[in-house]
Simulated assay, not measured.
Amino acid sequence: MSALVLALAAGAVIGLALGALGGGGSVLAVPALIYLLGFTPVAATTAALVIVALTSATALTAHARDGHVRWGAGLLFAAAGIGPAMLGSALAAHLPAGALQAAFATVAAVAAVRMLRPAGDAEATRSIRPGHAAAAGAGLGAVTGVLGVGGGFLAVPALVGVLGLRMREAVGTSLLVITVNSLAALGLRVGTVDRLDWSVVGPFAGAAVLGAWDGRRLASKAKAKTLQQVFALALLAVAAFMFIDAVV
C-alpha cells in the first residue's frame, strides 16, 4: 500500500478522534507516522504537532459555533502550559528514540485506563479554581512538548474531573487547549519543520481536517461514553505494542 493511501487513511481516523472526542488524535498520529510511514520518533512527534494543530483548530471552530467552548477556562488552562510545552519540546530533541517511545507508550496507557474509568458528566459546571487550572495546564503542556501530543486525551478528563466542565464542554474546550499547546511546542521546533516529508504530512493533515468535521457530527449522534471506551481500548493496544517495541 502506498504511503499516500496510508497517510490519507490514518489522517481520516485521527481527525474523527479529534472531532468526536476532543483529543486522541496525536496519540494515534505518532505511532502511525512511525510504524506505517517510516518516520523517526523525533520527526513523528514534530509532524504530529503540525497535523494536530491544524486539525484541532478546524474542529474548534465547529464546536465553538455549537456553544461548547468555555473560553475563559480553556485559555487559562492553555496559558499555563505554554512555558512547559516549550521546555519539553527542547528536552525532547536530546532524548534517545527508545526512551521517547517508551515514555509515549506509558502516557498513552495511563490515558487509556483513565478513559475506561471516566469521571462522568458533571451535573452542573463548578466554578473554576485558577490554581487547579494552572497546575493541570502546566502538566499537560510539558507532556505536549516532550511527546509531541496535543494532550486532548488527558485534557478532557482533567477538564471534567478537575474543573467540573460537562463532557461536551470539555471536548470543545480541549480543542482550544490542544491548539495553543501544539503551536507553543512547535515554536521551538520550527527549524526542523522544513525537513519533514510534506508529500506525506500534507495529505495526512488534509484528511485529518476533513475527518474532524465528520467526528463532530458523530459526537452529536453517538453516546460520548461509548466513543470514549472504544477509543480507550484501541489506545491501550497501541500503547502495549509501542512499549514492547521500545524495550525489545
Rank of each mutant, 00 (worst) to 15 (best):
A170K: 06
L165R: 09
A222F: 13
A208L: 10
D214S: 13
G187W: 02
R216S: 01
L188T: 14
L176T: 08
P203N: 04
A224N: 10
T173Y: 06
A184F: 00
F204A: 01
T179R: 06
L227T: 09
A185P: 01
A207K: 00
W198A: 01
V230Y: 10
L183K: 05
A224E: 14
R189L: 11
S199W: 11
G206D: 07
L210R: 04
S199K: 09
G202W: 10
L218D: 03
A185R: 01
Q229M: 11
G211H: 01
V190T: 14
I178W: 06
T192N: 13
Q229P: 03
K225T: 12
G187S: 15
P203F: 05
E169V: 06
G202H: 06
R217K: 13
V201M: 04
A207R: 00
V200K: 00
S174G: 08
L183N: 08
V177E: 11
Q228R: 14
V171W: 05
T179L: 05
T173R: 06
T226Y: 07
A184Y: 00
V200D: 00
L165T: 07
V201W: 00
R166G: 13
D194G: 13
T179M: 12
D194P: 09
R166F: 07
A208P: 02
R189M: 12
S220Q: 14
L176E: 04
F204I: 04
V200S: 02
P203S: 04
R216I: 07
S199E: 08
S199N: 09
W198Y: 10
G202S: 09
R216H: 12
A212G: 00
V209F: 09
F204T: 00
A207T: 02
T179P: 02
